[in-house]
Design a protein around this nucleic acid. Structure first.
Lengths: 245, 245
DNA sequence: TAGTGGTCTAGACCACGCC
DNA sequence: GCGTGGTCTAGACCACTAT
């Protein structure tokens, strides 16, 4: 960074910082190690704390760092691969799943989900909340929206625990599942999801939307929210494969 | 926002701002419309420009806004769905694909890719660059890493145009494809990808890594970089499906 | 040249985890 | 209480686009 460099097109300081820190992480630090605090690092690199933070934010986004208020910044372990299908077509909530059922509540689906379910926007439906645990840490939360049309004979909308949710899921399983469908996009964690994932609101998440088809219509929609900093979503092979990796 | 509210747990200003802006976007603005500039908006809400920008950043991350230097901030159209499989297993570069082949260059695969390919880290291999266009806009760039072991009789490493790349791909197609594999994770655009995607370096992207298996090993690895702000990755149904949505 | 978003500074105070 | 990261301010200047 001396005076010998002309920097015809000066790259932003935070970008350069990121490069330097990435190299340092690769060579001088090991997983779990605590970095110097932000004020110290900023002083060491001769930049304002805000600039240093801009670099740290990107590194956290890339899963290289983990920052916790009141604690410090640590070197993150490599992202864990989380399998998200395509599984053999199965209803959610069947035994042998990676998901844990937490309960059920009435919830008005977000507009795009209401459109998929062909319900009137703003009208609450049964929403089963589930959590996915991997390596002892929650990696995803999910809201499974179940319109009344898919639950013949179901009780009125109400809050309930895991048992109540299982009762609803059994009604869902009575339908014939004809197929399913997935989409992945980037989002930011809503307050409740953030709390369950041990992150701050607005943290980047991968949103996986699954549609379940039955009787020629969308019988259920699941919106799962995965921690983007720690998760790599894997779509495993369907056919016979050699598993070379 | 008057004095009547106690705010026991005051939520951050930028978070509240984001909510207000989201509602305004839903009700008062239409796609493509230009918002007031940042200084104007900050003044209108009585916050510093940095705080306003924190809210705008999140909205851009969620695909609600589009910001361009020298131009302004506009309301973004809904994300486009981009199909990323699972397709019937096919080598990349066959006719009928959504990808356009740009050329080939020697490139040292990143460490994780080198591990998958079982090549020695730091050693360059053939890297075919491809671009995916959707609705007239580039939505993804890809580097397809081809180790020499998968290209019997290939010429030495060299830069080349689309024709040279096609020649290499034909050699690849001579192998028997046994299966493939995908993973999705969050990343930030490297300088070159950012340029091709018309974004700034560091912009959030969805990184799709595809492994191609042949003869019991990983014959090729593709690292595709999708614009996270404008893309929703869809994993279409493999089996027969009613297509109700 | 004027106006936009992008970068950067040097502070201040707050919320949280730990001792 | 102390140290950490998180939020916020009020400026300044730069890079880019359109006119």
């Amino acid at each position: 960074m001396g005076t010998t460099q002309l920097e015809q097109v000066p790259e932003p300081k935070y970008w350069h910082l990121k490069t330097v820190l990435t190299d340092a992480l690769d060579s001088e630090f090991s997983v779990g190690e605590i970095l110097p605090n932000e004020r110290e690092l900023a002083a060491r690199f001769g930049v304002a704390r805000a600039t240093l933070r801009q670099a740290l934010e990107q590194l956290e986004l890339e899963g290289r760092l983990q920052r916790r208020r009141g604690v410090g910044t640590t070197v993150a372990p490599p992202r864990v691969g989380v399998d998200v299908g395509p599984e053999p077509h199965r209803w959610p909530g069947l035994p042998g799943e990676a998901w844990q059922t937490d309960g059920v509540e009435p919830a008005a689906p977000p507009a795009p989900v209401a459109r998929l379910l062909a319900t009137t926007p703003g009208t609450p439906v049964h929403a089963v909340r589930r959590t996915r645990i991997s390596h002892g840490q929650p990696v995803a939360t999910e809201l499974l929206y179940l319109p009344a049309a898919s639950l013949p004979g179901a009780p009125d909308l109400t809050h309930g625990d895991a048992d109540a949710a299982h009762t609803l899921l059994r009604l869902l399983h009575a339908n014939a599942l004809e197929g399913q469908d997935r989409a992945v996009e980037l989002g930011s964690a809503r307050a409740e999801d953030a709390r369950q994932l041990d992150r701050l609101p607005g943290a980047p998440v991968l949103v996986v939307t699954t549609r379940y088809f039955s009787a020629g219509r969308t019988a259920a929609v699941a919106v799962a929210t995965y921690r983007a900093d720690t998760c790599r979503l894997t779509f495993a092979e369907t056919g016979p494969l050699p598993l070379a990796g």
